[in-house]
Design a protein around this nucleic acid. Structure first.
Lengths: 205, 205
DNA sequence: TTATGCCTAACGTTCGTTCGTTAGTCAATA
DNA sequence: TATTGACTAACGAACGAACGTTAGGCATAA
């Protein structure tokens, strides 16, 4: 018989449901139905409902730490930036669009993001995670990028924290829009292109 | 005997609870406890739980239509802009800070905003409201402002939709941050000041 | 044999909702 | 002025359904 992976299926279904309905509004029965087992069987894998949420969050967190674009980049490391010499407006626009497509469509990332959004006012731990992942890490990443582009002579010198906020915030807002209305992705991608082009224009040295 | 306003107290408490826990995760008993009556008494005022949500949303919507800064402004109307001649970077920064303080602290507005945020993936009607109120109306307002500032000769000519997105998105992101971590409001207000100053600088004609 | 994974059944609690009752208000009527 | 009846808003009690959780049984695999 195949090795059972029910535990992973439960976590998968839990993330699915929590990301749309939230933790409290998702019932053990719904979750069991989604997995295709009886609800009592869930307790062969987890101590209780809270344990499922904790494990889901842990998994999301680990996936983020392992795969996030934003925490792994180090714009002060020559090794990281050695293939970043052709950072024209067009290329950066394409880069950003690619990163957006990835974080919009990767199932774990997008559901994790929605979960944090939904639970941010009820769960203090998740509120902190939301600030770190979708604000501070993003801001830091783009601050590094701005410093690099200034150092390169592509952009003029200015407060990099503000530059990073002005560059990244429209993207953050548009990602949220796509999470809500996925059919607007093409429209948003065109806006992103225009945004990046115009940003490079106005900050051009 | 005093005229009873239990119905309004229920709606008040419902908005309170829905904005933090969401609709499904808020129980009729919690709501009754918050108001200080028995849960059966709620049914003297509303047909059922859904009716309470509908009325809350209706109320929030009406309050928004009546008081929103963003839908009432018409930057093409001379009557509206006649006292807007002194729109220097400093003055706009102060204006924005004032508007932010208002929408951050007005109880109805802030709770309504949180409710939309929490319910945006579950409730299609509220998803549409979220897009309209916190994206499209805001963008339109600032597009009008940008057109005005270009017409005045304060800012250089550029795609006003992108300008408005670049101007408003950091503000949107920071409002969300303050909703989650209110103690960072002062820090955010300083960022807003810097953002507006730098925006006027880079787009200066 | 032991351990695992899923099952059925049942637990006590809470859910949203309905019912009938009661006390108080108000206007019309006698 | 006093009596009546309609109306309202609150109540306690109870409903069936769903909640999260536990216990015990029964296969299969190690």
């Amino acid at each position: 018989m195949e090795k059972s992976n029910t535990r992973e299926e439960i976590l998968e279904a839990a993330l699915d449901l929590f990301a749309v309905n939230g933790y409290e509004a998702t019932s053990i029965s719904q979750l069991a139905d989604a997995v295709g087992i009886r609800k009592a069987s869930l307790y062969s894998h987890f101590a209780n409902k809270q344990d499922i949420l904790d494990t889901v969050v842990e998994t999301v967190l680990k996936g983020y730490a392992d795969h996030s674009i934003f925490v792994r980049a180090d714009w002060d490391d020559p090794e990281f930036t050695k293939d970043k010499t052709g950072m024209t407006a067009e290329n950066v626009a394409k880069l950003i669009q690619g990163q957006m497509r990835y974080i919009l469509h990767d199932p774990h990332i997008s559901k994790g993001r929605k979960l944090l959004m939904i639970e941010q006012f009820r769960n203090e731990e998740l509120a902190g995670l939301q600030t770190k992942q979708n604000y501070e890490d993003v801001l830091n990443y783009f601050m590094g990028m701005m410093r690099f582009l200034i150092r390169q002579g592509t952009l003029k010198n200015a407060d990099t924290e503000i530059m990073a906020a002005q560059f990244s915030s429209p993207i953050t807002v548009w990602i949220n829009l796509c999470d809500r209305e996925p059919e607007r992705e093409d429209e948003v991608m065109e806006l992103v292109r225009k945004h990046v082009m115009q940003f490079f224009e106005i900050y051009r040295k």
